[in-house]
Simulated scan of single mutants.
Amino acid sequence: MEIRRATQEELDLVVELFDGYRTFYNQPYDKEGARKFIYDRMLNNESMIFLAFEEDEAIGFTQLYPTFSSVSMRKSLILNDLYVKTNARRKGVGEALINKAFEYAKEIGAKGVLLETGRENTKAQALYEKMGFTLEDNHFYYFTL
């Protein structure tokens, strides 16, 4: 398995995985919307995307967004997306992608990596806890516009 930063030349590979990720979370299939969203993130350097390959096939990805802590005056990363194709699961791909995210976070001097997942996604929760993530006690609020 190889993990590397996605390039604009690999946009189609990212879009396929990204749309799979979205449909996993019960969002409608929207290849054109996915293409525009990912292209904009790449073009504007707003996220870091890593692809996992098995031979020449892209089998998973993670997308990281920067954020900042005013209290610590340091950068953090939000591991916003993590997805592995169904036929590649249970092979350590997710773990390898998370390790790549940790490596990148250390390279840029980030304070840490934050993520969230659905309460029902217990398989992902088990992986995150195995990787050293801890469940926080903070309350998070969201205002929908």
Rank of each mutant, 00 (worst) to 15 (best):
R4K: 10
T7S: 00
L11H: 01
D12Q: 02
D12L: 04
V14R: 02
V15N: 02
E16L: 02
F18Q: 03
F18S: 03
T23M: 00
F24K: 00
Q27A: 01
Q27T: 00
D30T: 05
K31E: 09
E32P: 02
R35K: 14
R35E: 07
K36R: 05
K36Y: 02
K36N: 04
Y39P: 03
M42P: 00
L43H: 06
N44W: 06
N45F: 10
N45P: 02
E46A: 11
L51Y: 09
A52C: 11
F53Y: 15
E54W: 05
E54S: 13
E55M: 06
D56H: 12
D56K: 15
E57K: 08
E57N: 08
A58Y: 03
A58K: 04
A58R: 03
I59A: 12
I59H: 07
G60I: 00
S69R: 11
S69F: 06
S70H: 11
S70K: 13
R74C: 03
R74T: 10
S76V: 13
L77A: 14
N80W: 10
N80Y: 11
K85M: 14
T86P: 09
N87H: 10
R89G: 09
R90K: 15
K91N: 14
G92A: 12
G94F: 02
I98V: 15
N99M: 13
K100F: 04
A101G: 14
F102K: 15
Y104C: 08
I108Q: 11
A110Y: 03
K111R: 15
K111G: 00
V113Y: 13
L114F: 15
L115Q: 13
E116G: 04
T117F: 05
G118N: 07
G118E: 14
K123R: 13
A124W: 07
A124L: 06
Q125I: 08
Q125G: 12
L127Q: 11
L127W: 06
L127R: 04
L127P: 09
K130T: 11
G132F: 04
T134F: 05
L135W: 08
E136S: 15
N138D: 10
N138S: 09
H139K: 15
